[in-house]
């Protein structure tokens, strides 16, 4: 399952003609994202209210912080009552919760998942590791600052943060959205080259298009 699947290759058509296949070009749409204008005035406000009250979360649970997300669904914390729900697919989610440290390997997946979400999208970074690498700050294999790679709306500090802290973080996010400051997706589009450059600097085996739709 290595890189050979994205290398150019030649296949034979049913008629016997050779066909050049360049997977990255032929299989993937790699149009760069565009910054989207927000609607004007009250409509945008209303929309932001709806966005803030309906947070569909994509939980990226590879770090140890992931364990703190689960209790949110339990009767004790019951995040549902705040309009927070979990979705299993990035397509439908609007909030990306990245739980804790990110190894170089998982960063690629995080980027892909992030890019597959639709604008507007918000990122909640969970735990100290996402701020400065935390206890792994000098590790050979983890990133230090998440917002070098994608715009982060809310950091929830702690190693690890309690579910209460998470709830507080979500509350903060709601405020940010309602105030119209949740424009991470546009920021990403506007500074796309910088983000991509950072990502590519750290991810050596880059095997995907520059933007994952």
């Amino acid at each position: 399952m290595g890189k050979e699947y994205i290398e150019k290759r030649t296949v034979i058509s049913p008629e016997g003609n050779p066909i050049e296949v360049d997977p990255l070009k032929d299989y993937f749409c790699d149009a760069a994202p565009k910054s989207c204008k927000s609607a004007s005035g009250i409509i945008e406000k209303f929309a932001n209210w709806a966005r803030s009250e309906s947070l569909w979360v994509l939980g990226f649970g590879t770090g140890c912080g992931a364990i703190e997300m689960r209790p949110l669904m339990t009767p004790r914390f019951d995040a549902y009552r705040f309009g927070i729900q979990w979705r299993p697919t990035p397509r439908q989610a609007s909030v990306f919760v990245i739980s804790g440290y990110l190894s170089v390997k998982t960063l690629k997946r995080v980027v892909r998942s992030y890019e597959q979400m639709q604008n507007p999208k918000f990122v909640v970074a969970l735990g100290s590791c996402t701020i400065n690498g935390g206890m792994y700050w000098d590790s050979y294999n983890t990133i230090n600052r998440l917002d070098h790679y994608m715009p982060v709306d809310v950091y929830i500090a702690g190693c690890m943060p309690r579910p209460e802290a998470l709830l507080a973080g979500f509350d903060k996010l709601k405020h940010i959205i309602r105030e119209g400051r949740g424009e991470g997706a546009n920021k990403y589009a506007e500074n796309f080259d910088w983000y991509k450059g950072n990502q590519k600097k750290i991810i050596k085996d880059w095997d995907m298009p520059d933007y994952n739709w």
């Binding site: 709806a50 569909w56 019951d78 549902y80 009552r81 309009g83 729900q85 507007p120």
Partner: peptide
């Protein structure tokens, strides 16, 4: 039944509106 508060009963409306307000789509 699960001893939670659960969603607000009007949550489906909000979800619906939110989904229509996404700015990009494929």
């Amino acid at each position: 039944v699960g001893r939670r508060h659960g969603i607000r009963f009007y949550q489906p409306y909000i979800d619906l509106i939110k989904n229509y307000t996404f700015r990009t789509r494929i």
